[in-house]
Every structure is written in structure tokens, then in C-alpha cells.
């Protein structure tokens, strides 16, 4: 599904190197977690994957379903099936959540030469999905993320994910700012979307999210590299000992 090879990235402005040779391969249906301390390059990796400007790839490659995506526009990567659940979802005043969702969905469909959904089809789909995530219709009518609570924003990200049906989902610290109940709802939403054709890359500081979204593989990232990979057990190790030990190994 996703193959990251020797990826080196620096900030365009400061020329500061952030990723220093990341290697990561995710097969269809797998859930991988990337854990690591602040500043280890986790969020940068999610931005580079999705094509945010401001980063310069100095070496390495990223292939999504066998296609090199580093030269593609963000919207092309999205249409190819890449989805990023933002750590801090962006507010767009005046743009209704429904309008946004429908525009996004139909843009992707158009890009893939599929027919656009009409209003009725879309409405049914969004209502069904919203129900699963405890999102009431009122929230669908409000402007995108404006005045949403932390929990609402994250649930809204998962709703978008459910609607857009991506094949490669990157979750950037989706658990940050969530209380236990809200995290459970989000995790339930994500688990409901797991299937053998859809892969996940779950970026998190803490092990607690991984109790609810159980990964197949856990990677530890530090100083721009993946320094260790293992099973879900590895996350527990982090929980007990912190990241300090791993850094020493590195």
C-alpha cells in the first residue's frame, strides 16, 4: 500500500533537516503505529506524505499503491486514496460542513472519472455515517470546524474519512486533546473502517490510543528516523520506560 524509502526531508526556509532516512512499508489492511517524542519528525512525515508546501524532499521516495506520489499535488494524492486526519483540524468560516464534504467527495469522484453524487444520494450517505459517529445533523450544518469542541473536530475528521473512503489513512495525533470517552468514540469510528484493503498509519505520543486501535506493527521514531519496530507490545514498553531508553539505543 505505502512504501517509504530512505526519505530525507528538510524545511524549505531553515534548511533544517527533519527526516533523516525514514523507511516504512505498510501492506494493505495493516495498521501501523508510529510513536515518538516531541520533535522526532512524526507530524512532518504526515505533512510530507500529504504534500504540504514548505518541505523539501532531499532524498528517498514514497510510493502509494506503486505510484510515486512526491511529485503529485495534494488533491491528486487525495484522489489516489490518501487521507490525513489533522492534529489540529482547520476552521473554514462560512463554509457549511455538508458543502465541504460534498465538494470534496465529488472532486475526488470527478478526478477518478466517477459520476458525482446527487444531493439525495449524498444526504443519505452522510446521515448514515454521521449516526455511527454520534454526530448530530446540527453539527453537519455548521461551518467547517468553527466553534467545534476538540472532540467534535476529531469526530468530524473521522466522518470525512468515512465519507471519502480512502485506502491509506494517516492519523496525526488524533488522540490529542480528547478525553477518554471522546477517544473511545473516535477509536470505534476508526475500527469500523478497518478492512483488508484499507491501511492506517496512526501517529501518537501515547500508548493509550493503541489500547483502542490495536496496531499490527509499532514503530518508534526519534530524531528523524525509525529506530525500532515491533508488535503492539512495543507500545507498552514505551508506556513503562518512556522514550529515553530507545534514544540511547539509537
Amino acid at each position: 500500500m505505502l512504501a517509504i524509502k530512505d526519505l530525507c526531508v528538510r524545511l524549505e526556509d531553515e534548511k533544517k533537516e527533519i527526516l533523516k532516512g525514514v523507511n516504512l512499508t505498510i501492506k494493505p489492511g495493516e495498521v501501523h503505529a508510529v510513536m515518538g517524542p516531541n520533535g522526532s519528525g512524526k507530524s512532518t512525515m504526515s505533512y510530507v506524505l500529504s504534500g504540504k508546501s514548505g518541505y523539501e524532499v532531499t532524498a528517498g521516495s514514497v510510493a502509494l499503491k506503486g505510484t510515486n506520489i512526491l511529485e503529485m499535488e495534494p488533491e491528486q494524492r487525495a484522489a489516489l486514496g490518501l487521507f490525513l486526519a489533522f492534529q489540529y483540524p482547520i476552521e473554514i468560516p462560512g463554509v457549511g460542513n455538508m458543502t465541504f464534504l460534498r465538494t470534496a467527495l465529488n472532486s475526488q469522484r470527478k478526478f477518478r472519472n466517477e459520476s458525482e453524487l446527487n444531493a439525495a444520494e449524498f444526504l443519505k450517505l452522510v446521515r448514515d455515517q454521521a449516526k455511527l459517529l454520534n454526530i448530530d445533523t446540527e453539527m453537519l450544518k455548521r461551518p467547517v470546524n468553527v466553534g467545534f469542541s476538540g472532540g467534535e473536530k476529531k469526530r468530524n475528521e473521522i466522518l470525512q474519512m468515512a465519507m471519502l473512503e480512502p485506502s491509506m489513512c494517516v492519523l496525526d495525533e488524533t488522540d490529542s486533546g480528547l478525553d477518554v470517552d471522546a477517544m473511545k468514540i473516535v477509536a470505534k469510528g476508526v475500527n469500523g473502517l478497518r478492512n483488508r484493503n484499507r491501511s492506517f498509519l496512526v501517529i501518537t505520543h501515547y500508548q493509550r490510543l493503541l489500547n483502542h486501535i490495536v496496531p499490527d506493527v509499532v514503530h518508534i521514531m526519534a530524531d528523524g528516523k525509525i529506530i525500532r519496530s515491533g508488535t503492539a507490545e512495543l507500545a507498552l514498553e514505551v508506556e513503562t520506560n518512556g522514550y529515553a531508553n530507545f534514544k540511547e539505543i539509537a
Binding site: P74, A78, I90, I92, S107, Q108, L164
Partner: peptide, 16 residues
């Protein structure tokens, strides 16, 4: 820029 990137990550072209 962040708003535009958010839209584009969801599949919406830049001008749209």
C-alpha cells in the same frame, strides 16, 4: 494557506 491545504488534502483542487 492552511485552509487551502486542508481543502486540497480532501481532494478539492486549488482554484476550487
Amino acid at each position: 494557506e492552511d485552509q487551502l491545504f486542508y481543502c486540497r488534502q480532501r481532494g478539492v483542487g486549488e482554484e476550487e
